[in-house]
Design a binder for these strands. Structure first.
Lengths: 233, 233
DNA sequence: ACTCTTATTATGTCTATACATAATACTAAT
DNA sequence: ATTAGTATTATGTATAGACATAATAAGAGT
């Protein structure tokens, strides 16, 4: 056993990664414990711990107390994706951002929505439909509900001047949320708003947010055809 | 200043989160440095450091040496997605997984692909088209290229019996990759394979993987209509 | 004014040590 | 034999102290 000096947790991460990919430690195998690795790498256990912890967070290792650390058999790789602000997304490409409010109503939400989102049935909520433009061309269409029981101030805001999402992040922060992505065919109205043909495939993001237990807002965003969401492994 | 004893980095994370959401520390604001917070919370600096580091990794804080830590103005929230194995996905729902190889050819890839993926032009590669079934119903259709310059063994494998992805994770691990999600209208052939109508919206995943600089495989997966990719914030 | 050097500051990381905790194995009492 | 208690083990986390590093500010020299 060669005692190489690898002091940084980054070094150890890449060395362990190397051993996994070269199958020095094949899938399913139990690897030496932190103390042994610390001796081998010539560093402290805390350093080994951080390296292994991060690798387990990205889905390559599985750790259990007393049982030890093993290489995951079928690694379910974890990718982090940035849920960007639409305005930033557009401006990052050097385009001009535009925003148009299409509809606004203080009405009772459909029962299905109330159920899945956890708001009391029979209460009015703010319903907004809006369009995000990139250089005056439709970029995304959003259909949003805001819980005015919890954020009554939202009723006084002029959402034809203020982007709802941006107002909400400033005025009604959330503690956790829930996002789903899918593909749907644009219906008659949606295709008109997005200025595409009917039945064109659009990328959809459904997001619900809460502050502790209280629902804040739920939004469905339809992106114009060609939209791609990108990340690395 | 009340000196509360918050010893765990989890406690500190939620306390800091609380201060951000309640705007005790409003967006853009510089928060006290680690040393001060350690005193306030009655813990060590390392503990505060871990809490703040994790919050900055999830996009809520921005940290710079010497400059300090500040609350991000327009938080670009980061969500982690699990890129699951299709078989697991299907079996997790209690369905039976099935796999059918549709086409196999050792041919030269289109020039566009060679360019974007970084393989030498004019070299043959393995091209596979396959179908993933859930209870014998089409679930996803994949179109894959394998770099046989780097993995010549792939030419000898019977991919009508072995799922290509599963063979590759076992036999040709990658160090990094690149994933994009989008929505497209199924063309004539795709809709036939997936047993849906032409132009139906399908959710698409494009993935490229490398081992260091060497391309391993690139695959486009089309999921049957209704597919949703889910995560939490 | 301008550049170069030096000091300062907050975060980034490492170490050694300690104790907590989950999972398991062993042991003694009934 | 079953159960309750105890020991063991590897990871999980906390602590105090140290030094590294990036970013900035202050000062010196031209």
């Amino acid at each position: 056993m060669t005692l190489v000096k690898l002091n940084s947790f980054q070094d150890i991460k890449s060395e362990v990664l190397e051993r996994i990919t070269t199958r020095t430690w094949p899938p399913g195998e139990l690897i030496p414990n932190e103390e042994l690795l610390a001796v081998e790498f010539g560093c402290s256990r805390a350093t080994v711990n951080r390296a292994l912890r991060e690798l387990s967070e990205s889905g390559l290792l599985e750790r259990k107390r007393k049982a030890g650390t093993r290489v995951v058999l079928n690694p379910v790789r974890k990718a982090t994706l940035s849920i960007s602000i639409i305005r930033d997304d557009i401006e990052k490409r050097g385009c001009t951002y535009g925003y148009v409010l299409l509809e606004r109503a203080h009405i009772m939400p459909p029962l299905v929505l109330a159920k899945t989102w956890g708001v009391a049935a029979g209460r009015k909520m703010l319903h907004l439909k809006a369009l995000h433009l990139s250089n005056s061309v439709p970029y995304a269409y959003e259909d949003r509900w805001i819980n005015t029981e919890h954020i009554p101030r939202a009723l006084e805001v002029d959402f034809s001047a203020h982007n709802a999402n941006e107002w909400l992040v400033q005025n009604a922060p959330f503690t956790h949320g829930d996002i789903a992505f899918s593909a749907v065919n644009a219906d008659a109205r949606e295709s008109e708003y997005l200025d595409v043909r009917e039945r064109d495939a659009v990328f959809v993001m459904d997001r619900k947010t809460w502050h502790d237990q209280t629902p804040i807002t739920t939004v469905r965003v339809l992106f114009a055809p060609g939209h791609r969401m990108h990340t690395t492994l």
